[in-house]
Nucleic acid binder design. Structure first.
Lengths: 196, 196
DNA sequence: GTCTATATCATGATAGAC
DNA sequence: GTCTATCATGATATAGAC
C-alpha cells in the first residue's frame, strides 16, 4: 500500500481536506479542489454527487484521523496528568487551527445535519476520553476525589479550541501554549500532594 | 439620538455586522448586505470603497461593543471570583458563537493586517482585563498567591471561545456552560480557604 | 473513467441616469 | 445621495466526446 500513487478519488478527498482546513466550506470552490488535486472536473462528478458530498467524505476522514491521533496522545505511558499534558502540548500547526473545530462555524455545515455528525461525534468522544483519564487519575489517587471530571474534561477540550482562536487573532502560536499552560496549572491544583 | 431612524450608512454597518456574525466574511455577499439593509447598491459604494472597507468598519464597531460589554460584566460589584463568573456566565446567544472569535478563522480576514487588528486588540484587552481581576483577587487574599494570573487569564478567555465551538458542534448551548463550569471549578481550587 | 465544452446563476464592482 | 443598468468573473453543475 505505502508508496502507491494516490488514485483520483483519493486525491480529491485529500485536496478537499486541505482546502476545508484552510478556507472552510463556503470558502472552498470545486474549481480550487480540482486544481489542487490535478484532476479534471468530470472525475469529481463521477465519484461524488457534488461539493457537499465530497466535503462530507473529507470531514469524515478528518474526524477519524483526529480520533486516532488523540487516542495515541492519550494512551502514551505516564500518569493521568502527563497523558493530558501530552495531548494538550502535542505538536500542532497552531495557526492553521483545528480542522474539525473550524467547520462548526461554517454556516452551511452548521445547517446540515449529516455534516455536523462527525464534528459532534469527535468532540463527544474527545470529552469522554479526557473524562476517562481524569477518572483514572482519581481512582489511582493522583487527583483529589473532589475533581469534577466531566465539566473539567469539557473545559480542557474548550481550552484547546479557544487556544487556536486566540493564537490566530494574534498571529502567534504562543497564545495557544499560554492558554494550555494556564489550564494545566489550574489542573495541577487538584493533584494530591503525596500519593500513597 | 435615541429613537432616530438609522440613516443609510448606519443601516449598512449594522446589516454587515449581523451577516459577518452569521456567515463570516467569505460567506457574506454585498447583495445580501444591501438586501438586509434595504439599501440600493449605489449607496454602499458611495459610503464605502467596497465589501472589505465596509467589513472593516463593522468589525471595528463589534470590537468596541464587545469591550464595553466585557468591561461592564467585569466591573460589577463582588469578589474577583464573582466578577469572573459574572463574565463567563453572562447571558449569551451561545449557538451564534462569538462575533469576534469567528472572524479569526476566516481566511481573507486572517490574511489582512488591518482586518486582524481589532480582533487581536480585543483579545489582548480581554486577557489583560482578566489578569487584572485575578491579580486583584491575589492582592486581596481571595486567591492563593501561587495562582499564575497571566496564563490562567488566557486559559479563561480560551474556554469561552472553545465553549462556543463545542456548543455549535453539538447544537447545544449546555456544552458552553459545562466548559465554563469546569473552568470555574478549577479556579475555585485556588480560592483561599479562609480570608484573613 | 477522464476530459472538455457549456449552461446558469451569483459575485463584486462600475457607469451613468435621476 | 440613491437608483437601476451593466459588466467581467467565478461558482456549481451538466452534457457529451473520447
Amino acid at each position: 500500500m505505502y508508496g502507491m500513487a494516490m488514485d483520483t478519488r483519493e486525491r480529491l478527498v485529500e485536496s478537499t481536506r486541505a482546502l476545508l482546513w484552510e478556507r472552510g466550506y463556503v470558502g472552498t470552490s470545486p474549481a480550487a479542489i480540482l486544481d489542487r488535486a490535478q484532476v479534471g472536473q468530470g472525475s469529481m462528478y463521477h465519484y461524488f454527487r457534488g461539493k457537499s458530498d465530497l466535503a462530507q467524505a473529507a470531514m469524515e476522514r478528518t474526524a477519524d484521523e483526529m480520533k486516532r491521533q488523540i487516542a495515541a496522545d492519550m494512551s502514551a505511558p505516564g500518569t493521568a496528568f502527563e497523558r493530558i499534558r501530552s495531548y494538550l502540548h502535542r505538536e500542532r500547526d497552531v495557526l492553521k487551527g483545528c480542522p474539525i473545530g473550524r467547520m462548526t462555524l461554517d454556516p452551511e455545515v452548521y445547517a446540515s445535519e449529516p455534516a455536523c455528525e462527525p464534528l459532534d461525534d469527535t468532540f463527544q468522544w474527545l470529552c469522554e476520553t479526557l473524562r476517562g483519564v481524569l477518572e483514572e487519575g482519581k481512582r489511582d489517587g493522583e487527583f483529589v476525589s473532589s475533581l469534577p471530571s466531566a465539566p473539567v474534561a469539557t473545559a480542557l477540550a474548550a481550552v484547546v479550541q479557544g487556544g487556536y482562536v486566540l493564537a490566530r487573532a494574534a498571529h502567534d502560536p504562543a497564545r495557544f501554549d499560554e492558554a494550555v499552560d494556564g489550564a494545566l496549572e489550574l489542573l495541577a491544583g487538584f493533584v494530591r500532594r503525596s500519593h500513597d
